[in-house]
């Protein structure tokens, strides 16, 4: 227990947070335009994680190709999610409960498809990095942590630029406050919604690869990260990108800290407890949007 140990822990926590950020930002993106959560997010994530795995096995894809495959698959799967479980409800119903049922069913379906194909067995990603560690002085760092952090930062940077500086991003921001007027301006709202689902799905795909690199894959990752994604979204204040980023960082650090204090098997208990206390103290989330308003 010395300085270098804590430094490594901190970096591990931040990189863990970066993975949550990729999940949570995709979640927040969908919530901000539709005002409800897509509970199939984890399903998309686990499907694309396994498709990325197939790419490594079948064509020996390296990290970048795996990320590209998973992102593309995630995006396409999410387009199907929108068309199958949201599209008609979006036009005909304002009942949040229906969206909830429809998306959670879709998520379970995706997860079960993975179970059908890869049932029971545990798969893990190959080691993408020639060396696992590099040293500065006498401290050694885990390369994969740094890579994930850097990749997440670049992806989120690009996403923010797209949202702030492009016509498409402008339409997404307009849509998030006033869909009807956005369509009155001549924007094909359905198309923008689909494109947003594609982006959120691509983010889910990248997150899936990250999970595959950090841990061993199992179909249950789908439901587990749906819960965690929702948690981060609520802590961040639903629909807020800044809040989601901040909440991800906090959750990443807290989870890492608990895994040291309580051990990995008990860590989730600590994390859930932390989230409950947080929500008790600040139910509106970090960004101040009231969390209970819409699930």
């Amino acid at each position: 227990m010395n300085f270098s140990y804590y430094l490594q822990l901190l970096i591990g926590g931040v990189s863990n947070g970066a993975m949550y950020a990729i999940i949570a930002v995709g979640w927040a993106l969908i919530f901000s335009i539709l005002k409800f959560s897509n509970f199939a997010h984890g399903g998309t994530m686990v499907c694309s994680a396994y498709l990325g795995l197939l790419a490594t096995r079948i064509i020996g894809a390296n990290l970048w190709l795996t990320l590209a495959v998973a992102a593309l698959c995630g995006g396409l799967i999410n387009i199907l999610v929108e068309l199958i479980s949201f599209h008609r409800l979006r036009k005909s119903s304002k009942q949040v409960l229906l969206f909830f049922v429809s998306s959670i069913t879709m998520g379970m379906l995706l997860q079960n498809l993975v179970t059908l194909r890869f049932s029971g067995l545990f798969y893990s990603y190959p080691n993408f990095f020639k060396q696992r560690f590099f040293r500065i002085g006498n401290i050694s760092f885990d390369i994969s942590n740094f890579m994930m952090l850097a990749i997440a930062a670049v992806i989120l940077g690009i996403l923010i630029l797209v949202l702030q500086k492009t016509r498409f991003g402008m339409a997404v921001r307009a849509l998030s406050v006033d869909p009807r007027t956005t369509s009155l301006m001549g924007v094909n709202v359905d198309l923008v919604v689909l494109a947003t689902f594609f982006i959120a799905g691509a983010l889910a795909g990248v997150a899936g690869v990250f999970v595959g690199i950090r841990t061993i894959l199992s179909p249950q990752i789908g439901s587990m990260y749906t819960v965690k994604g929702f948690m981060v979204a609520v802590i961040g204040g639903l629909g807020s990108l800044n809040g989601a980023l901040f909440a991800s960082l906090i959750l990443g650090l807290v989870e890492t800290a608990f895994s040291v204090i309580l051990g990995t098997s008990l860590a989730p208990v600590g994390t859930f407890f932390f989230v409950l206390i947080f929500l008790f103290l600040r139910p509106q989330g970090l960004a101040g949007v009231f969390a209970m308003e819409k699930a």
Partner: peptide
């Protein structure tokens, strides 16, 4: 009026010029 409150004046105009 229904201007987009979270967009700048310039961006609101660009939304109008979408077509």
């Amino acid at each position: 009026r229904r201007v987009f409150p979270n967009l700048t004046v310039a961006e609101n105009l660009l939304m109008g010029g979408w077509r």
